[in-house]
Simulated assay, not measured.
Amino acid sequence: MLTALLGGTFDPIHYGHLRPAISLANEVDLKQIRLLPNHIPPHKPQPEANTEQRLAMLALAIEDLPLFALDVSEILPETSIRPSYTVETLQAWRCKNGNQKPLAFIMGQDSLLGLPTWYKWQTLLDYCHLLICRRASYSTQTDSTKLQQWIDTHQTNDVKDLHNSPNGYIYLAHTALEDISATEIRQNINNAQNCKNLLPPKVWQYIHIQGLYGTKK
């Protein structure tokens, strides 16, 4: 069975994470997506919500969605003092689960285009497939010849490749565009704007109970 990981800060988790992931699961026949919150993201500002709060929001968001499970391997005490590098997480997954099980890592189109800034990015496909969800306002092509050649070399349009091989393919999914960002949500909440249509209701309620992102100004 093809396992998929979806990493992020989830500060907070919102429908821009969940809806494309559900669509992707239907498209490529995923039975489970493991949400992988990182403790110290290498390419983003540090989360405003603390680890306990982000985990609580994730648990609330997925408690009625059996497709999703929570994976805390990047925020264990052993890894909490340094950035969470995806390639190291994938290596650890392989050490635990072996080299023959199909594994995929889900990322947005924006992350794909920014891969050259990732730690050991060219080795990612040694451990997994990449499943790419479309992002609004992002091009399907990159200005980096090196990255584009890498994508072209490994791209597949055949879902069977993802299930029949443990790693090595890039699949550009046809997920709907969701123009939602956690940054915008935090800013809007801080400015007393209603964002309840962008988040699961239980997450929206938790944000207010905890006074996150300026809700108790």
Results as ranks from 00 to 15, higher is better:
residue 137 S to E: 10
residue 132 I to W: 00
residue 75 I to K: 01
residue 38 N to G: 11
residue 80 S to D: 08
residue 101 K to R: 11
residue 76 L to N: 03
residue 75 I to G: 07
residue 177 L to K: 12
residue 207 I to S: 08
residue 4 A to P: 02
residue 179 D to F: 02
residue 170 I to N: 00
residue 22 I to A: 11
residue 120 K to L: 14
residue 114 G to Q: 13
residue 62 I to H: 03
residue 168 G to Q: 03
residue 197 N to P: 13
residue 71 D to C: 06
residue 145 T to V: 06
residue 208 H to K: 11
residue 32 Q to V: 06
residue 77 P to N: 11
residue 37 P to S: 04
residue 89 T to A: 09
residue 99 N to D: 14
residue 158 D to L: 06
residue 19 R to G: 08
residue 157 N to Y: 00
residue 192 A to D: 09
residue 181 S to D: 10
residue 215 T to I: 01
residue 98 G to L: 00
residue 91 Q to I: 12
residue 159 V to C: 08
residue 201 P to R: 03
residue 151 I to M: 02
residue 174 H to I: 02
residue 162 L to M: 12
residue 142 T to G: 13
residue 97 N to H: 12
residue 13 I to T: 07
residue 215 T to F: 01
residue 187 Q to P: 09
residue 117 T to H: 13
residue 81 I to Y: 11
residue 12 P to V: 03
residue 131 L to M: 07
residue 173 A to H: 05
residue 60 L to H: 14
residue 152 D to Y: 00
residue 51 T to K: 13
residue 100 Q to P: 06
residue 172 L to T: 00
residue 149 Q to K: 08
residue 68 F to E: 01
residue 134 R to D: 05
residue 190 N to A: 13
residue 129 H to R: 04
residue 183 T to R: 14
residue 102 P to F: 03
residue 186 R to S: 04
residue 149 Q to E: 09
residue 126 D to N: 13
residue 201 P to D: 09
residue 58 L to I: 08
residue 182 A to E: 04
residue 149 Q to M: 05
residue 190 N to F: 02
residue 150 W to E: 01
residue 113 L to H: 02
residue 193 Q to V: 04
residue 130 L to Y: 10
residue 198 L to Q: 01
residue 147 L to M: 06
residue 84 S to W: 12
residue 76 L to W: 08
residue 170 I to M: 02
residue 211 G to Q: 12
residue 169 Y to N: 08
residue 92 A to Q: 07
residue 206 Y to F: 15
residue 52 E to N: 11
residue 206 Y to P: 15
residue 140 T to A: 07
residue 85 Y to T: 01
residue 125 L to V: 05
residue 15 Y to V: 04
residue 83 P to G: 12
residue 72 V to S: 14
residue 109 Q to T: 04
residue 121 W to C: 00
residue 68 F to L: 02
residue 29 D to E: 15
residue 169 Y to V: 05
residue 33 I to N: 11
residue 55 L to S: 10
residue 88 E to T: 06
residue 143 D to A: 05
residue 41 P to A: 09
residue 167 N to K: 12
residue 190 N to H: 09
residue 187 Q to D: 15
residue 207 I to R: 06
residue 72 V to I: 13
residue 144 S to C: 07
residue 5 L to G: 08
residue 76 L to T: 10
residue 140 T to D: 07
residue 205 Q to N: 15
residue 69 A to G: 11
residue 162 L to R: 01
residue 168 G to D: 01
residue 128 C to L: 07
residue 176 A to E: 15
residue 18 L to I: 14
residue 215 T to H: 06
residue 47 P to E: 07
residue 134 R to Q: 07
residue 51 T to V: 11
residue 1 M to S: 07
residue 205 Q to G: 03
residue 96 K to R: 15
residue 34 R to F: 10
residue 57 M to K: 02
residue 126 D to T: 05
residue 72 V to G: 00
residue 101 K to E: 09
residue 43 H to L: 15
residue 213 Y to R: 15
residue 122 Q to G: 05
residue 167 N to E: 12
residue 34 R to G: 05
residue 90 L to M: 08
residue 50 N to P: 05
residue 178 E to M: 15
residue 160 K to D: 10
residue 60 L to Q: 13
residue 81 I to T: 13
residue 104 A to Y: 02
residue 213 Y to L: 14
residue 53 Q to M: 07
